[in-house]
Design a protein around this nucleic acid. Structure first.
Lengths: 128, 128
DNA sequence: GATAAGGGTTCCAGTCACGGGAAGGTCAAG
DNA sequence: CTTGACCTTCCCGTGACTGGAACCCTTATC
């Protein structure tokens, strides 16, 4: 299978697939003409990576998860720890964004949004 | 005032202040020895920028907001639009993160997290 | 007068996970 | 034989800094 077929199947851009090879997440074979040749296992790994990325895991986490996936003697605790750490980071980020949203929502509501220069948003940003 | 004093006052790292000068957000004067010399207006601008960044505004938005702040004939509608657009982006990001959090929370709960290899997290990532 | 500490300066490289685009090789169809 | 759609590698740019090297300036101390 060539790269564009794999891209269609996995939903990943070809660029991304090449990048994943470059950083050794996958190692597709090569045809005599230099084209990458993907086996089902490659496609499967890429789909795995795509889903892990969609859950927000960093590339290095994805590498770890893939290694755990391929290690049949893994402990589920190792997987859980990676996921739990990531979940904690997401929750931190959420709290931060919610705080921003709350402040911004308030400021936007206060602002008349007309032709006059008076603006509580700027006033807040410029407060001493 | 030298850069480290400004860093203390604004809470911004000196590196960041130099960066803001490099991209022309501020233009501090220079002493004969080459040191940056910050006036109160510079410090004020930097504090403004720090607060805008803390609300998640992109640097280019900060540039716009600063320009609006300094333009006494601005329309508050222009400020509000920038803030509203940013707020919308934050809400999109929030929805995305919440979706990740929900999925991850569920998966983490399902995972035994013990020495056995069986793991619903990996199972989910590897699903067809 | 030498030196050391603690400022300051510039410049370069790295971060993260790709995306865009150029230059060029390969393949199947008409 | 050419056209068009593939494929390849390589290099640059993204955002907003951060770290570090190499070097200059000032002040205090020995």
């Amino acid at each position: 299978m060539n790269i564009s077929d794999v891209a269609k199947r996995t939903g990943l851009p070809a660029k991304t697939i090449r990048y994943y090879e470059e950083i050794n997440l996958i190692r597709p074979a090569r045809d005599t003409n230099g084209y990458r040749v993907f086996k089902d296992t490659d496609v499967h790994k890429l789909a795995f990576l795509g889903r892990a990325r969609a859950l927000g895991f960093a590339i290095e986490d994805c590498r770890t998860l893939l290694a755990l996936y391929e290690d049949e003697t893994r402990a589920s605790a190792d997987v859980k720890r990676v996921a739990q750490d990531h979940l904690t980071q997401i929750e931190d980020k959420l709290a931060q964004l919610e705080s921003m949203r709350d402040t911004l929502t308030h400021l936007v509501q206060e602002c008349a949004g007309d032709a006059r220069p008076d603006c509580p948003i700027l006033k807040d940003l410029a407060k001493d």
